[in-house]
Structure formats: C-alpha cells, structure tokens
C-alpha cells in the first residue's frame, strides 16, 4: 500500500514522538469538539437553572457513579497494559486490554438500560411528552442525549481501536520496540474517560 510511489523515509523511520504528537493534536480537536458542547450546556444551564436542577432528578446517580468507576478502572487497566508492554510481558498486555474492552462493554450495556428507561418514559428528543415540558427540560434532555450519545460513539470508536491493538499485540506487530499504536490507543481511551469525568457531575450531580 505504501510503496505505490516511493519508499519514503517517513515510512521507514519509526518516530514514536511524531505519532504521539499527532495523537495529542487529534485529542485537542476532540477536546474542542466537546468543549463547544460544554459551552452550550453552560449557557443553557445559566439561563434555566431551576429546570436543569429539577430535570436532573430523572437521572440515577447510582448508575452514573457505577459507570464513572467502570471507566476509571478501564483507564487504569489500559495504562497498565502499556506498563506490561514496556516490561515485555505480552500476556499481561493482552489481559489488561481484554479487561478494558470488557469494562467498556459493561459501560455501554448500562448506558443502554439507562437510555432505554428514559425512552420508555417518553423522554427522548422530539417526543411529545418532552415537548410538553418547559424549555429548560427540553434543553436538558436534548443535551443529555446528544452529549452522552456522542460520548458513547467515542467509546465505540475507542473499542474498535483497542480491538485492533489487541490483535496487533497478539500477532507481534506491536512489540516492546514499537508500541506507539498501543500508546495512542491508550491516549484515546483516557480522553474518553476525561470527558466522562466532566459529564458525570454536570448531568447527574446538579445541586
């Protein structure tokens, strides 16, 4: 695939700092992407403080808390898989990655039930029941579904990425001499965690 024109030195030379820098820059774009949504959130919360406070009672702090802990643990396991790789322990790397993927799946299942319950109660964007509520409620749940939805998409992308990492570790394409892809997958996963760290208090813990 890469020999179609030439043997570029950029392909031959493996530069982990370049790829890490590229990944960080990509993470910045993701931060700004969610950043814009946090601006929208804060403007609407500022304009509808009471409605936002009342609406958040619909969300279960317990599920939010569990999901937060799940993501934090998965973040730690991904970090530990990098440690294992640096120590040259392939088996541990694979185990930590598998745990991460498992936790991500549990997170999504929780999310599915959480969303399902809301939708069952008639609360979803554009629903008749939601439109009969106040402006603040419409915006709160609009933002809730949009932001957690976008976050869930990021979880799925992260899972795809980590699955690729998993198989590449297994067949040795990612190895202790060359593991930027694992590192970058990890960085992406931490980003997903980072965003959730803010989503949790903003949606579940309004006082």
């Amino acid at each position: 695939m890469e020999q179609n024109t030439t043997t570029h030195t950029a392909h031959e030379n493996y530069d982990p700092i370049s790829s890490k820098l590229g990944m960080w820059l990509f993470i910045f774009t993701e931060l700004l992407l969610f950043g814009a949504l946090f601006i929208v959130y804060s403007v609407y919360r500022y304009r509808n403080p009471v409605a936002f406070h009342l609406a958040h009672h619909e969300l279960s702090i317990t599920i939010g808390f569990i999901n937060t802990v799940i993501l934090l643990i998965s973040s730690a396991t991904v970090a530990m898989s990098i440690t294992a790789m640096q120590k040259g322990d392939k088996k541990a790397t694979l185990i930590f990655l598998a745990i991460t993927l498992l936790l991500a799946t549990i997170f999504l299942i929780n999310k599915y039930f959480e969303w399902g319950a809301k939708i069952h109660h008639g609360i979803y964007p554009g629903s008749e029941f939601l439109l009969s509520l106040s402006h603040g409620d419409i915006l709160f749940f609009g933002l809730y579904f949009f932001m957690t939805g976008l976050h869930a998409i990021h979880i799925i992308v992260g899972m795809v990425l980590l699955t690729i990492v998993f198989f590449r570790v297994r067949n040795g394409r990612i190895n202790p001499d060359r593991y930027s892809f694992l590192e970058n997958g990890g960085l992406y996963w931490h980003l997903v965690d980072l965003i959730w760290i803010f989503l949790f208090p903003l949606f579940y813990l309004i006082h």
Binding site: M1, E2, H8, T9, A10, H11, D15, G22
Partner: peptide
C-alpha cells in the same frame, strides 16, 4: 522529504 504522515 515529505510530511510526517503521508498517508493521512
């Protein structure tokens, strides 16, 4: 000789 990520 080229940019950092030619395929990208």
């Amino acid at each position: 000789k080229d940019v950092a990520f030619p395929k990208l």
